[in-house]
Every structure is written in structure tokens, then in C-alpha cells.
Design a protein around this nucleic acid. Structure first.
Lengths: 220, 220
DNA sequence: TAGATTGTTAATCGATTAACAATC
DNA sequence: TAGATTGTTAATCGATTAACAATC
């Protein structure tokens, strides 16, 4: 299996999302030209990207949506069923725990850990658990204080959804406890290590790029 | 004012975040080497990026944190006080409305619009308004059904935080009502037009890159 | 076969890097 | 002056594009 160029890897999730929609719409085949329109790239680039993944297309026909989706999902590890622990029972943390974003990518949340004693409305008995309006935690997801981290088994992904001030300390905790990956949603820039991979989500950065566009006019 | 390279623009928000932290810590000056450590780039790249912004450094001394921050904030339009309307009273939409992410960037939320009649716990009389645990809307932010969009004046930024299924319809609505920019937090890829700029946040994509790293091992 | 569409190539473009002269 | 650190350059690297031969 050849090493994929970094730029291609960065675009795979986009194909993943678009192909999933095609599958839901029961589309069976698609050409590089049509797919390019959906993902917002050129047909040439789409062909280049997909060719890097292997021999997936068929000349004169195009690509099988299912084959493509399966290949990309497998390359990305979307079928690996990683388990995540969310650090911070913040509105953002709870939104992620209850929304479809993680589960669609094959990531399941086993716990939400809080640092500040919140007057959270948790109905421990109920299933699914309703934390507050619109926030229903998935089955098997516990809500605990961070001090109970030991009792949580998952060590795949730590999702940092805490306040920025708490990030450095929680990151140390996470690294010490052997989490393999960190998805950092705080505003801090964290650096990974040999044993702990870190991805800084930089959610707010994309908003600033939009503001730059509105501010300066000239941009694309 | 020379046109900035696209790659530099993409990194400006990162400098913005790191410099803000330095300012909070009352750091006055910084060298390209130190700053590089914070933002996770090489010193060479930092100097290149900052040189593209103008004559901000001083040889033998470094950069003034304040000057740098002011210049970058101004370039990004962080001082333009853009007004945003959030489409979707979802957990994510409410998290953004109540959290510091927007306000730190000089963006204020004037309204949260909902599509489904939710049993939302809004205390209309109170100020600040508490929607649910941990979600306190800022002053001047209204919660309305989408049908009341006409009564909202802001036309700077529309934040799409609705369910994916609602995105196409709401996007049309937003474009028709003359919003200048769209920050799309749904999983769909939207394309902008001459009059409406669109940035797809692609929040989940960064999580998938992390999964790819855990899955494939070899990556950086 | 004719038409469609891929996979690949060569050319271009832009971004990154390392080194160092300029300068405070 | 000596030390530090920038701004700039030339060389390298990687990504994108357009064109077209290969092939279904």
C-alpha cells in the first residue's frame, strides 16, 4: 500500500461525506466530473486523488459509489470502531456526545467527563439519557467527574471540549493515561508526541477566514 | 496593500489565537523562533508569513506582541463587529451562541432561529437568558422561529447549525435574504456565489484525519 | 465500432526551507 | 562593537492543471 500524499489524505473525509449522501440517494455510479461538482474540486484532481487510492474506476463508465465509499472509509479507519472519551461536559462537548457527527464516522462515546460540578440534569435511570433539551446521550455513555477517569476503559481518542484554561492540565492527564489520539476542540494549539497524536480542530479559524473574506472583498 | 498568499491567510487565525494568549500573559516581545514553537511552524515560515503582512519586526529584537496582534486582527476583520444569525437551535447552535468562540473574534449573535418547535426552556424575561444548563445567550440575542427571519436585521453572517437535511433549504433562504457570508457547520458541501460567500467548516473532517492517523500508524 | 471516461504524464504553479546579508 | 534576530533570496519540494493516450 503506497503512502498517500498529505494533500490527498486531507481531502478524503470530503469524499467520504459526499459519497455517503450519494449512497443514501441510491446513486450507483458517478463520473469524476459529477463527483468533482459535489466535492468542489476539479475533475482532474478527483481522478488524481482516486487513482492514488488504487484501481477504483472503470474507463468509459466511471466509479461505483459503493466501492469508492468502502475503500475511502476503510482507508480512513472509519470501520475501526474507535472509542472516545469527551473531556468537558460543556455545551459543545454535550453537543458532540449527542449528535450524529461521531457515530457517522464509526466513533462511539463511552463517557463524558466533567471538571466543574454542574447542576446537570441527568436522569441516570433513563435510557437514552436526557441531559437537557435536545441532548440525549447514546447508550453506554456515562457522565462522570474527571477524577473517575480510571474507571473508564477506552484509550483510543480523547476529545478535549473543555474550557481553554483547563486544556493544558487535561491534556497532560490524557497523555499520562495513554490515550492514542487527541481531538482538540479548544483554542489552544497542542503538540502531539510519539505516543499521543494530536489534531487541533481549529473550529474558529474557518470562521475567521470567512470574516477575512467579508472584510477584504477580494478573495476568490 | 499587497494580496496575501492563500496559505498565509489560512494561518493568520492561528497567530491570532496564540498572540491573544501571549497578550493575556502580558508578554511584550517575541522572536520568530519562540512564536514558531507556539504555533507549531518553523521560524523561517513565521518570518515569511509576518514579512508578508508588512514591516512588523525589528532586527535584533523580534516582534512586539501587541503590534502583531493588532495588525493580524485588523487584517482578518476581527474588529469589524460582524453580526451573525444562527440557523438551528440545535445543541451545536446553542453551544456557539453561548460560548466565547464568536465573541472573541468580534462576531456577535443577534438571533438563534429554530425550525422545529422545540420544548426549549427559555426564560424570556431573564437577562442573560438561560436556555438550558450551561447555555446562557448573550444580551440582545433573540430566539425565534425561522419564519420570523424578516424581523431580524443582521445580514452579515448566517451560521448554519441545523440538521443536515434542512441545510439545502435554509441555505436558499439565507442566500435569498442577502446574507453576505455563510459559515456552514453541517456535513454538506455548499458552494458560494458572487453575492454569498460560503465557508464549509468541515468540523468532522479533522476527526477523520485523526482516525486515519490511529488507523495507519505511519503519519508524521 | 463509437462514445465515454479513466489513469497518467509533463508543465506549471505555489509553498516551504535553509542560508545569510542586512540591521537593530 | 558584539550579539541577536529579522527580511529576503535561491533552491527545493509538493500540489495542481490540462491534455491525451489507454481502455472499457
Amino acid at each position: 500500500m503506497k503512502q498517500l500524499p498529505r494533500a490527498v489524505i486531507g481531502r478524503l473525509p470530503r469524499y467520504f461525506r459526499c459519497l455517503r449522501i450519494l449512497i443514501n440517494n441510491e446513486v450507483l455510479r458517478i463520473s469524476s466530473d459529477e463527483l468533482a461538482g459535489l466535492v468542489g474540486l476539479s475533475a482532474s484532481q478527483v481522478r488524481g486523488d482516486l487513482a492514488a487510492l488504487g484501481d477504483l474506476g472503470q474507463q468509459g463508465y466511471g466509479y461505483s459509489v459503493k466501492t469508492l465509499y468502502a475503500e475511502i472509509a476503510s482507508r480512513l479507519g472509519a470501520g475501526d470502531n474507535f472509542e472516545a472519551v469527551i473531556f468537558g461536559a460543556t455545551p459543545l462537548g454535550l453537543a458532540l456526545a449527542s449528535g450524529p457527527l461521531l457515530s457517522r464516522r464509526g466513533v462511539s462515546v463511552t463517557a463524558v467527563l466533567y471538571t466543574k460540578e454542574v447542576r446537570t440534569i441527568v436522569c441516570e435511570g433513563e435510557s437514552p439519557k436526557t441531559v437537557c433539551e435536545g441532548v440525549v446521550l447514546p447508550d453506554g455513555c456515562r457522565v462522570l467527574p474527571v477524577s473517575e477517569l480510571e474507571s473508564v476503559k477506552s484509550r483510543d481518542i480523547a476529545i478535549l471540549a473543555c474550557d481553554d484554561e483547563e486544556a493544558p492540565e487535561l491534556y497532560r492527564l490524557v497523555a499520562d493515561h495513554g490515550f492514542r489520539g487527541v481531538w482538540n476542540l479548544t483554542e489552544l494549539e497542542l503538540r502531539g508526541s510519539a505516543s499521543t497524536r494530536v489534531i487541533n480542530a481549529r473550529l474558529g479559524d474557518s470562521l475567521m477566514i470567512l470574516c477575512f473574506g467579508l472584510h477584504s472583498g477580494d478573495w476568490e
